[in-house]
C-alpha cells in the first residue's frame, strides 16, 4: 500500500477531502461575512445562527412540508435571506449611524435568541437529514473512496463562491456594491438607493449562510449549536485572510480546511486548535492578514 509520510494513501486522501469540504464551508461563510462587512462595516455575529437556521429550515421543510433537498437548496436561502432583510430593515438600520461595535453586539444578541429558542424546541442533540438518493454512495477512484455527497458539496460550494465573485466583480449591481463600499455618501449623491443596496446586501450575505446550512444538513447532525462553534473558527479564518478581498476569503477558507484535515492525520490532538495557531502566527508576522490592505 502506498504510504505518505507513514500514513496510508487512502487515509491521507480521505482526511484531505474532509478538510477540503470543511474548507468549502469556511470559504462560504467567510465570504458572506466579507460581503456584509464591506458595505455595512459590521461583523455579523448572527452568521453562525443563520447558517444553523438554514439547516433547520431544510430539516423542518422536509419533515412537515415534504420539501425535497433540491427545492430546499433553492427555497431556504430565499426564505432565510428574506428574514435577514427584515432584520436589517427593522433592527440594524436603526443603529447604522453608531459605532460599528454596536452592530456586533446586536447580532450577538440575535444569535443568542435564535439559538436559545431552537434549543428549547429541539434540544442540543442533533437530528439527521437524509442525503438525497442520487448523491448517496461514492466513487472508487482506485487510490481512495470518494463519497458522492462530499464531492457534490465541494462543487456546489465552489460554484456558489465563483457566482458571488462574478456578481460582485463583473456585474453592474456588483459595481454599485463595490462603489458603496468605497464611499456610500458619494453613491447616494449620484442617485443610487444606498439604503436599499445595504438591505439587499445583508439579505444576500444571510442567504449565503443559509445555503451553506442546507449543504451541511446531510453531512453534520442538525443541531441548534452547530453554527456558533463553527463561526468562531470562521472568525479566525477571517482574521487570517483579511476581509478585503473576495478571492482572498475563498482561498484562505479552503487552505485552512486543508491544514485542519492534514493536522487530523499527523497530530490529531491539535486538529481543533490548529487554525487558531495559524491565526496567531499571521498576527505576529502580518497583522493586517494575508490578503488585507495596509491600513
Amino acid at each position: 500500500m502506498t504510504m505518505i509520510f507513514g500514513v496510508p494513501l487512502a487515509v491521507f486522501m480521505g482526511q484531505l477531502t474532509l478538510g477540503l469540504v470543511n474548507g468549502a464551508f469556511y470559504a462560504l461563510l467567510s465570504l458572506g461575512l466579507a460581503v456584509i462587512f464591506g458595505l455595512l462595516k459590521i461583523v455579523n455575529f448572527a452568521h453562525g445562527a443563520q447558517y444553523m437556521l438554514g439547516a433547520f429550515a431544510a430539516l423542518l421543510g422536509f419533515r412537515y412540508l415534504g420539501i425535497n433537498y433540491w427545492l430546499a437548496l433553492l427555497l431556504v436561502p430565499l426564505v432565510v435571506g428574506a428574514f435577514g432583510v427584515l432584520l436589517e430593515r427593522f433592527l440594524l438600520r436603526r443603529i447604522a449611524h453608531l459605532d460599528h461595535l454596536y452592530g456586533l453586539l446586536l447580532t450577538f444578541g440575535l444569535a443568542l435568541i435564535f439559538e436559545g429558542t431552537l434549543v428549547n424546541f429541539f434540544g442540543v442533540s442533533g437530528a439527521r437529514y437524509a442525503t438525497p438518493e442520487i448523491l448517496q454512495g461514492g466513487l472508487n477512484l482506485g487510490f481512495m473512496f470518494l463519497p458522492t455527497y462530499r464531492a457534490w458539496v465541494l462543487v456546489a460550494a465552489l460554484a456558489m463562491c465563483l457566482f458571488t465573485w462574478f456578481m460582485i466583480e463583473r456585474t453592474r449591481l456588483g459595481a454599485y456594491l463595490r462603489a458603496g463600499t468605497e464611499n456610500s455618501q458619494l453613491m447616494q449623491a449620484f442617485g443610487v438607493n444606498v439604503p436599499l443596496l445595504i438591505t439587499l446586501t445583508y439579505g444576500f450575505g444571510v442567504a449565503l449562510a443559509a445555503f451553506a446550512g442546507v449543504l451541511a444538513a446531510p453531512l453534520y447532525p442538525v443541531s441548534p449549536t452547530m453554527g456558533s462553534s463553527l463561526l468562531i473558527v470562521v472568525f479566525a479564518v477571517v482574521v487570517i485572510g483579511g476581509m478585503g478581498s473576495i478571492l482572498g476569503a475563498i482561498i484562505t477558507g479552503l487552505a485552512m480546511g486543508i491544514i485542519e484535515g492534514l493536522t487530523k492525520v499527523y497530530y490529531p490532538e491539535a486538529s481543533n486548535t490548529v487554525i487558531f495557531f495559524v491565526m496567531i502566527v499571521v498576527l505576529m508576522l502580518r497583522p493586517v492578514g494575508l490578503f488585507g490592505k495596509e491600513a
Partner: peptide
C-alpha cells in the same frame, strides 16, 4: 439565554 439575548438587543 433567549431572555439575555432579548435584553442584549434592547440595550443596544
Amino acid at each position: 439565554s433567549v431572555i439575555l439575548g432579548i435584553i442584549f438587543v434592547f440595550c443596544v
